[in-house]
Design a protein around this nucleic acid. Sequence first.
DNA 1: TAAAATTCCTAAATCGTTTATGTAAGCACC
DNA 2: GGTGCTTACATAAACGATTTAGGAATTTTA
Lengths: 345, 345
Amino acid sequence: MKKKRPSLRDIAEVLNVSTTTVSFVLNGKGEEKKISKQLIERVENYLKEIDYKPNLIARSLRTGNSHIIVFMVEDVSNHFFSKVGRILEDISYKHDYRVLFCSTENDAKRTREHIEIFKERQVDGFIIVPPPGIKEEIQDLKNNGLPVVLFDRKIEGIDIDSVLLNNYEGAKQTTQHLIDQGFKKIAFITIDLDQNQMHDRLKGYKQTVKEAGLDEYILTLPYDTDRVAESRKKIKDFIAAHPELDSVFFATNYLSQSGIKTLHQIDSNLVSNLGIISFDDSYFFEMYAPTISAYAQPIELMGKELMRIMFDRIKQKSEPSKHEEISLDGELIVRESSLKKYTRL
Amino acid sequence: MKKKRPSLRDIAEVLNVSTTTVSFVLNGKGEEKKISKQLIERVENYLKEIDYKPNLIARSLRTGNSHIIVFMVEDVSNHFFSKVGRILEDISYKHDYRVLFCSTENDAKRTREHIEIFKERQVDGFIIVPPPGIKEEIQDLKNNGLPVVLFDRKIEGIDIDSVLLNNYEGAKQTTQHLIDQGFKKIAFITIDLDQNQMHDRLKGYKQTVKEAGLDEYILTLPYDTDRVAESRKKIKDFIAAHPELDSVFFATNYLSQSGIKTLHQIDSNLVSNLGIISFDDSYFFEMYAPTISAYAQPIELMGKELMRIMFDRIKQKSEPSKHEEISLDGELIVRESSLKKYTRL
DNA sequence: TAAAATTCCTAAATCGTTTATGTAAGCACC
DNA sequence: GGTGCTTACATAAACGATTTAGGAATTTTA
């Protein structure tokens, strides 16, 4: 049943040539290696005839690369990451590379193990959303000459390629939009996560309200998704404590979704009466009634930039003289909710 | 810079033993292979000391397997699939396997290419959501002795392991729930996709309303996501043509989300006044106001069953005498929307 | 016409494992 | 002391490709 695939040697035997010749032709190096036209043709025809597929493992062992790129994110089932993953997959596919997604769970140990395994599997590059505490491993990868591009988050004190959202500018723009719509008491609801992107968003908000001469209203919720009840209560108390609030800026889309739910529970008119805007877009916001405006990350562009850098590094092999730190701008998606409010005030 | 990792041979040289010995110890076969206690210890210590990591590519080449399982779905960024993928990843991780997700785009050609590549990469098993037209390739994989488990959809006329939702029963149960709540004019909105699971859902609906002596109201929308406008119009016309409708059963969660949006556009009270229920759950339904009830697929269980069968097949190597066709039941998640309606009628 | 260059191809090493087979030493047994 | 059985390792052949170094035949050059 289990018919063995023919190997290069088998083919060479049948054609009465050496494996070298077959290998050269297979890899399109026939002319370069001065194989005669006739022979090239003969080999090519046979390869086509039997629909020969080389054993990629053997090839990897010999060449040291695998045409596989790893994409490590916090959670592959997170919508944002899976969307980006999909883009990466499509681009890779066109270049005959494959993408291996995996979840770090934002855990350094798990990430380390993954990296170790993939290194031994000769993957050609890493695109990583780095959890805290893996600076050394990243540096190590780079020292081993493996291309690494960070995504979504950066690591301080390490010179490395990265593709990030300009969180500061995004938050400024988002806050400014609310201000432009006439809102004056803008709350910023964020999570208790010590990560650069969250800091930058907060800074953007602070700076913008300050420039506009408005007051700050900041609520920080626990990161743990288990502590939903606690978060709900905090939001309720916060809203109750500040009846003057006319709008809310949620710092992540997950936050918005649960936050909106909570607002609706407090008072079913609240969501319609407040100016609500979210960082990170979501399918949800388009469907919800009322629709919710959001600052959307440029998913497609991110994927493209990631792969552009990755392929650059893979090709040039040597350590690049200069690393790229791409900072991308998102796009404010204005939906009815943050428009119609103005007339209500 | 690029310090080469030590190989088995290097280690053998340092320790003045053969690679065989090192290999046996490495794989825990020391005792079995009658290596002396002292030597085992000496080797183990050294391995630990240099933190030796074997080259997995070389191992794969020799052993013919890779500890990689491929999970091919229509689109990795689809929430349902990515959730299941995440489960598979976690289970695999515990068994020292990795999962390679990839998207078929429901396209036979792309699927074929993927399968070809992965076969050459010696993956140990395939979990596939099969697009139409790849029966032969699946059969071929099986003939090559590779474990294949189908997921979500089956292929007629092929004896193979599979894990599926019991769509018929699910649709029956879902419809029955609406009936139990007192609804009598129940619409079934589905898509124009010639797949078993859609047929089964339709059958479940039909059978249930028939048993209850109620009328059928069926609307079939185009599958193409580009034809949103057309779908919207069809829904509007359908609702207008049947003012007597008191409830709607959407056959997929994507449909529900866009459908609910449309209903809301027609009349902002419609969503609250109709009994609405969806096949496939979504985060969205929990957050929406009002919340939407749904028949949820047992994601975790599905993942577990898939991996259970997969590992069974990987272990036993030989062709199983009997294939498993697992048909799982989902769970009706009853939220306020389908409860409170009854009182309104 | 001998030396040099070119053309066309091959032998063999190599990547880093696993594993079938080999073998030397020690012991028991009649 | 010859035979057989363990024990405790080593040798070497795979796995299936790529690639270096080189060889024989032909052609060009001087």
